Computed example of a mutant assay.
Amino acid sequence: MSIDDPVDAHLQSLKQDLEANIADSLGAPTLAGILSLIPGVGAAVQSLLGGRAQRNVQRRWIELFLEMKKRIEQARASIPDHSYYGSEEFQTLLALAQEQLWTTHDKDKLRLLAIALANSGVDEFRGDDKELMLRALRTISPSDLRTLDHENLKGWLPLTNRFEYSDEILGSLSRLASLGLVTEKFLRPDPNASDEQKLHSVLHFGPRRTFQLSPFGQRFMRFVAAQDGQQDETALP
């Protein structure tokens, strides 16, 4: 980001002003005293009543716009019509993004949200259901995103290998499957195993399943990808 860019400089200045005001009084002394008596919850309620939550959302907007602007500049040659970002379709995506800003503070997810908004105007995604992909991004958690990007779900690997996933990862995979991002298949028991072995396997491990990144999941991962089209890899526990 160039410090000479007037748009960037203005956004950064707004962000600094918001951060400086966060420590301001959040309400009348009497109200603050009452709220302080509520263990743990008081501070959160104070922040909502005093406007701190609103300033946090405004700061997230600025961070999102900075990241989105950076991605648009990277993809400029692949954007056939820059007026798209003033269209009704893009306004719908912005409205979906606005709802997300109230419900997450995770910087990595906010960054992917900004990239997705920028990529919505790229020629590669002209025929995609961008609203569906943005809704999917809003629904899944940061840990779900890491699960989705793991090598175990890609290519032929899940079809040629059997993986034992933890309960936490199985829950994540089930959520991703419900969104169509992952394909879930039940495997037939080993025909060479005895009835006792088959029963033992079902009782201890449940039905054998395999999970694979779906075609929609593949498009989704490209939609939230930066210029190189790659995401960070994180090992599944």
Rank of each mutant, 00 (worst) to 15 (best):
37 L>R: 04
37 L>H: 13
38 I>C: 04
39 P>N: 09
39 P>R: 03
39 P>W: 04
40 G>D: 06
42 G>N: 05
42 G>I: 00
43 A>D: 01
43 A>M: 10
44 A>Q: 10
44 A>M: 14
44 A>F: 09
44 A>K: 03
45 V>L: 04
45 V>G: 01
45 V>P: 01
45 V>C: 08
46 Q>H: 12
46 Q>K: 15
46 Q>A: 04
46 Q>G: 13
46 Q>F: 00
47 S>Y: 09
47 S>A: 15
47 S>T: 15
47 S>E: 15
48 L>R: 08
48 L>A: 15
49 L>N: 11
49 L>D: 06
50 G>Q: 00
50 G>V: 01
50 G>N: 08
50 G>M: 02
51 G>A: 10
51 G>Q: 05
51 G>P: 01
51 G>K: 03
52 R>C: 06
52 R>T: 08
52 R>Y: 07
52 R>K: 15
52 R>E: 00
52 R>N: 10
53 A>T: 08
53 A>D: 06
54 Q>K: 08
54 Q>F: 11
55 R>A: 00
56 N>T: 14
56 N>K: 10
58 Q>I: 04
58 Q>V: 03
58 Q>R: 01
58 Q>W: 07
59 R>D: 01
59 R>E: 08
59 R>H: 14
60 R>T: 12
60 R>I: 03
60 R>G: 01
63 E>R: 03
64 L>P: 02
64 L>T: 03
64 L>G: 03
65 F>D: 00
65 F>H: 05
66 L>K: 02
66 L>S: 13
66 L>V: 12
67 E>D: 14
67 E>Q: 07
67 E>I: 11
68 M>A: 06
68 M>W: 04
68 M>L: 00
68 M>G: 04
68 M>T: 06
68 M>Q: 08
70 K>G: 02
70 K>H: 06
70 K>F: 09
71 R>A: 13
71 R>E: 09
71 R>W: 05
71 R>V: 06
72 I>V: 15
72 I>F: 05
73 E>T: 14
73 E>C: 11
73 E>H: 12
74 Q>E: 12
74 Q>S: 14
74 Q>W: 10
74 Q>Y: 11
74 Q>P: 04
75 A>Q: 03
76 R>G: 09
76 R>W: 10
